[in-house]
Nucleic acid binder design. Structure first.
Length: 557
RNA sequence: GGGUCCGUGGCGCAGCCUGGAUAGCGCGAAAGCCUUCUAAGCUUUAGGUCCGGGGUUCGAAUCCCCGCGGAUCCGCCA
């Protein structure tokens, strides 16, 4: 579409006092395709020309001709351009068929690093955490799609007080991952009731920092059980990581000490009345009562910020062109403080991508309190529903087990990814497990329908005269395919996968309208050949779009 | 008290960056469409003070200001 807009802008620039770039910024899409494909509002020229906008539109309509535009018409104050449908088809279809799964990619050759998920290793992940992982995975896929050599990190918070608490509670027993949630909740409850429990956790932590091998082993065991259990669930969802970075590494290799010393050299570190080391950040305009960052506890043990800084510096050593991390909205201020601290060390900060929480009707989720919906339970519900649906429609399929995973997880991911990350969502079983309308399965179904046609016809789309594609439904689909490429670049620029979700849904929706309006396999061989090409292009885009969201594209369902 | 994000038909959302013509989509509701490429689909109908109030502008869901409501944060949790 950009091609046509450029041509229009060029032609308009010749006829008016405006520059081509200015015109380009003013062009809009009419609300109804019957009005035209591209519009130029004439209000702005009104003062200068001392004529009414409708008169200007009329005047320009009679003067302008643009290649690939079959008609220029004035409607009130708007100058409307009708793109020749054949020109759209010939511009977009060959491009998609040639670029295939790269269609929409900027083909960067740069490097990127993304850190996401990074759940506390204590229990089975709940839906709120899943939003981080699913969003992060989608952004990682987006980066890879655009050609970024992308490294995916999972930061393992294996030295916290919460892990100490869990480790103490586990003691010498050898629990399974599935026991951890209960153990963690039990420990949290004990801590609330008895402050000695917290004291014990802090003592354990202190021993860990002072190199107690026994404690270190225990920590390691508990953390391993948790991380393995969590990663297995996420892996089942198709979410993978290149590197698990243990936080403890920065403690044991002396990085935290080094960073503390470096920060002290800035002269901004002071010791407070409780013997804690505190970093003064008043130079950074942070919206807090006292812009300070506490670096150590009174007993000298380090706080997470020092480890985070070490990790941030390590990330920078990889020389990435893009460096992003997915964080909850509760970490917004912390991300700023973190960036400020890195700046004091003359280091670059990663770009945070924040998301809001998933709420339940009854309020917030909390692993400690047990008011959670676990991702694994949600996954199971989705699989079971998918399996029931498949058996209802297509009981003869031989891969029902595999298929119900694709469809169930597709529904979960799409329901999370279609909403912009900064929006609070209230979880609702019915909406989240819907397979109809604006859902993952709807898109998967559209993709499967195309495969069905090709199975009947034979896999080769062949060649044909694309000028024949001029039905309204065909044109609408063509335009949707064209705007997919805009969506992928916009999504990259803003780190907003929901833009992809809506775009690929639009393609599926336009395809289904086309499917009902235009029979593909039919007597008119030439028309059939043209439509098969359109179908092949649609299949490519649907598959690409689904993959960007981490959703599989089954060929039958 | 201060900062940030969100507020769009009964419900869930897109549109806001970059202002433009009757505000889109899905669910739910009502009615229709399977002897033709999979009905997880399609078509039609009903349903909206775009949270409220000011301002900027020829024009505001969109930009600015002031409120209201929700989320979240503001020193030893990560």
């Amino acid at each position: 579409m950009d091609k046509f807009k450029d041509a229009i802008a060029k032609a308009l620039a010749k006829q008016t006092s405006l520059k081509q770039d200015q015109v380009l910024g003013m062009l809009t899409i009419p609300p109804d395709p019957n009005l035209g494909d591209v519009a130029f509002p004439c209000f702005a020229l009104s003062k200068e020309l001392k004529k009414s906008p409708p008169d200007i539109a009329k005047d320009l309509a009679s003067k302008i001709t643009v290649e690939g535009i079959q008609e220029v018409k004035s409607t009130g104050p708007y100058l409307n351009f009708f793109i020749d449908p054949a020109a759209i088809a010939n511009a977009i279809i060959p491009r998609i068929l040639k670029e295939k799964d790269h269609y929409g990619s900027i083909m960067s050759k740069k490097k990127a690093l993304i850190e996401h998920t990074s759940i506390n290793p204590n229990a089975s992940p709940h839906l709120g955490r899943a939003r981080n992982a699913i969003l992060g995975d989608a952004v990682a896929r987006l980066l890879k799609f655009h050609g970024y050599n992308t490294e995916v990190h999972y930061y393992v918070n294996d030295v916290g007080k919460q892990i100490a608490l869990l480790t103490n509670e586990v003691g010498d027993s050898t629990p399974e991952f599935s026991d951890m949630l209960e153990i963690y909740q039990r420990a949290s409850k004990k801590m609330e009731e008895d402050e000695k429990v917290e004291q014990a956790a802090l003592e354990t932590l202190n021993k860990l920092e002072n190199g107690d091998e026994e404690i270190r082993k225990k920590f390691h065991n508990v953390v391993q059980i948790c991380v393995k259990g969590q990663a297995a669930i996420l892996f089942e969802m198709g979410i993978k990581y290149d590197h698990f970075q243990p936080e403890s590494e920065f403690l044991f290799d002396g990085s935290t000490d080094k960073i503390l010393k470096k920060l002290e050299k800035t002269g901004k570190v002071f010791t407070d009345e409780d013997n804690r080391k505190v970093l003064d950040q008043s130079d950074y305009n942070l919206a807090m009562k006292e812009p300070v960052l506490v670096l150590t506890r009174g007993d000298g043990t380090s706080l997470y910020i020092l480890r985070d800084l070490a990790y941030g510096i390590l990330k920078n050593k990889r020389k990435n062109d893009l460096n992003v991390m997915i964080l909850g909205e509760d970490h917004k201020l912390y991300a700023k403080q973190f960036a400020a601290a890195l700046d004091m060390l003359n280091e670059q900060a990663p770009t945070p991508i924040h998301y809001s929480f998933v709420l339940l009707d009854e309020g917030k989720m909390s692993t400690r309190k047990g008011t959670v919906i676990l991702l694994e339970d949600f996954m199971q519900e989705a699989r079971e529903k998918a399996e029931a649906e498949i058996k209802k429609r297509n009981p003869d399929l031989d891969n029902i087990h595999e298929l119900s995973r694709s469809i169930g997880y597709g529904a979960i991911k799409f329901s999370i990814l279609k909403v912009s990350a900064e929006k609070n969502v209230t979880f609702n079983w019915e909406n989240a497990l819907s397979f109809e309308g604006e859902t993952g399965p709807y898109i998967q179904y559209s993709h499967a329908r195309i495969h069905s046609i090709f199975r009947k016809h034979g896999e080769e789309a062949g060649t044909g005269n694309l000028d024949l594609l001029k039905h309204d439904a065909e044109i609408a689909l063509l335009k949707s395919l064209a705007s997919f490429a805009d969506a992928t670049t916009h999504a990259l620029k803003t780190y907003h996968p929901h833009i992809i979700a809506h775009s690929v849904f639009d393609v599926a929706s336009k395809f289904n309208e086309f499917y009902h309006a235009c029979p593909v396999l039919q007597d008119d061989e030439k028309l059939q050949a043209a439509r098969l090409q359109l179908l092949e292009a649609t299949r490519i885009v649907l598959k690409t779009g689904l993959e960007l969201l981490g959703i599989q594209a089954p060929e039958r369902m």
